[in-house]
Design a protein around this nucleic acid. Structure first.
Lengths: 208, 208
DNA sequence: TAATTAATCACCCTTTTAGGGTGATTTTTT
DNA sequence: AAAAAATCACCCTAAAAGGGTGATTAATTA
């Protein structure tokens, strides 16, 4: 039989912390095994709590939530970290995920949804608030009205992979001079004059 | 007052197509305005349907769903495309999103959830099945046990941006020779001997 | 504390690459 | 028919890349 899901909450606001703790602990199948007000507090004892899921706030005193993630994952490699915050900035989201967070919920999420997300993350899912999902999806979407032609985009992608002109020529079965010609046109269209600037421009405008 | 959400379904399997059409159309606030068996079929008439949301299958006869997305967006720039498919391959998901899809659901999604997702996408959300969300989140996560040091990772990132040794040296306020030294160590650790191979390795192993 | 790793810099060397200029030809697409 | 895209050619110079073989000084970890 499945044992209860063990949860630790790291959140500095007492009201929110106790509110979530009460709500989640009251739910069948969920145990809130510990709560902490900061990462520094948590670091000392959390390993002994062996939680399955950590609910982590971002705006914490001392070490912030984002930086806490890799440290927590080091202490508890099997544990899932679920971010629960008011922030919806793209940078924070991507940094949190890059650092090993398994999900990202905003605090306006209904508590039933939070409880559900804890289970999802435990079962290997990746819960996100819909507004977060929107940002994530947007980050994948390329600019549909690129000034570059197909071939130019293709070549710019290869430049983004660090390939030289001659490598690109070999990859595309075209002449080195043709590649040069395309790159020149790319530079004119993007108004740049180096690979680095072209890549920067391309990423800014989501051309690649 | 809000008018009903207009939906078009493009799906080649008759049973599935009619099933979804019936289910969604029966829901208060949702109108299925048209259904098509392929993009080629749809292309002729879909503009006149002016749907708000298109439910799109990937495995279609003729033009596949992925390639159909940009064409549909061109015909109906304001319209949202929601992918509904059995495929869960990373490549397909990312290509679909890159091509302009606003959400990605797998066909095992309960119909109530599909109906809800249509509304979400209409309201600017980004619905995803939880298994899809997991893949998407995983794609953001970096390898926590990189063989590279912090500085090496930092330099590899700049190489990934197409920067030259001297540019990197300027960016980091260190000597050109120090950059060289780091790059040499990166090459040794990754067992490569060119920028392109280093970037490839780094991306494969999610080091950057 | 001793040993290892990380980060810094130096100078040897050759080949490749990048970027600018200025063309042309042939497909495609509009 | 005109415009855009894709192809190739040859001029040029400076910069960059990659390999080798060192050393010194922090940090960090065993």
């Amino acid at each position: 039989m499945n044992r209860n899901i063990r949860i630790t909450i790291i959140e500095d606001d007492e009201t929110i912390r106790n509110g979530y703790a009460y709500l989640i602990d009251a739910t069948e199948g969920y145990d809130v095994v510990s709560t902490y007000v900061s990462f520094d507090e948590a670091a000392k004892k959390i390993a002994a709590d062996h939680p399955d899921v950590i609910l982590l706030d971002i705006e914490l005193p001392g070490v912030n939530g984002i930086d806490a993630i890799p440290k927590l994952k080091k202490l508890l490699p099997q544990c899932f970290v679920l971010i629960l915050t008011v922030y919806e900035s793209e940078k924070l989201i991507f940094n949190a995920l890059a650092n090993g967070a398994s999900g990202y919920l905003t605090k306006n999420t209904p508590s039933a949804k939070i409880v559900e997300s804890i289970k999802e993350v435990k079962e290997g899912g990746g819960p996100m608030s819909i507004n977060i999902a929107k940002l994530v999806i947007k980050s994948f979407q390329k600019n549909q009205e690129s000034p570059l032609s197909k071939r130019e985009t293709q070549i710019l992608e290869l430049i983004g992979e660090g390939k030289s002109r001659s490598q690109i020529a070999r990859d595309l079965f075209i002449d080195l001079e043709t590649v040069r010609s395309h790159i020149k046109n790319i530079y004119i269209k993007l108004d740049v004059n180096s690979r680095a600037d072209a890549i920067k421009m391309a990423k800014q405008n989501k051309l690649i």
